[in-house]
């Protein structure tokens, strides 16, 4: 195996490392969560990443978005993701999709992927993504952050996790995000993703809830 993956072993077997190299993951959103997710998936050795975001960087992204740089303000987030992955691990194939997720394009975007990573920043887009994953029969790794708080989960097709979680139209009162909150959430989401891709045991419908202000971690059954 390549030296770049030596330290994956034995946490992952050599067979699992090879398996990851054959897998395809869509990351929907290349901001706070997405930047970290793409970085972690590229380094662990996922073979193909579809980086999706219609947005470009602005100065307010710099406090937390790994892909953002002063020199990249005004540039495409999806394109920045592709260029960074090429610098980190040229073996990873990346498609940059410079578009926002919509009802019209969601199914096309997720089709052909083994896992879809939620790195979105609003509830309505999560509903669209969840429905597309259900139609395509693809596992969906939910993640959301606010201030000091992060939560993530695996949703398997048909389990209705997102509808249960956001049954009533929620009001997000804290729109702040600190630098470390997306990093933690993305790490937890990537651990779930790697387990899914390797065929390891993953519980769907469990919300992993992290409150970094009070250092409290909860595992909540929601289904």
């Amino acid at each position: 195996m390549q030296a770049r993956y030596e330290r994956n072993v034995p946490a992952l077997s050599e067979a699992e490392c090879a398996l990851l190299g054959s897998k395809r993951v869509a990351v929907i959103g290349c901001g706070g969560l997405g930047g970290h997710i793409i970085e972690l998936l590229a380094r662990v050795g996922v073979g193909y990443i579809k980086a999706v975001d219609g947005d470009s960087f602005d100065e307010s992204n710099l406090n937390r978005q790994l892909l953002s740089e002063t020199a990249l303000i005004g540039k495409s987030k999806a394109q920045a993701a592709k260029e960074r992955v090429q610098r980190i691990n040229p073996d990873v194939e990346v498609t940059a999709v410079e578009a926002f997720l919509t009802e019209e394009n969601a199914l096309d975007i997720v089709s052909g992927c083994d896992v879809v990573m939620d790195a979105l920043d609003n509830v309505s887009a999560r509903r669209v993504l969840s429905r597309a994953c259900e139609m395509a029969g693809i596992p969906y790794v939910y993640g959301a952050i606010s201030g000091w708080v992060a939560q993530c989960a695996v949703s398997m097709p048909g389990d209705g996790l997102i509808e249960k979680l956001f049954g009533a139209e929620p009001e997000i009162t804290d729109k702040s995000v600190l630098s470390f909150t997306p990093a933690l959430c993305a790490a937890a989401q990537c651990a779930l993703c790697v387990k899914l891709l390797c065929g390891r045991d993953v519980q769907s419908g469990q919300i992993y809830y992290f409150d970094l202000l009070n250092m409290e971690f909860e595992n909540i059954s929601i289904i």
Binding site: G29, G31, G32, N122, R126, I145, S146, V149, P182
Partner: peptide, 8 residues
């Protein structure tokens, strides 16, 4: 009771 979290 847990608050709504929705950013990314």
């Amino acid at each position: 009771l847990f608050p709504a979290v929705g950013g990314g």
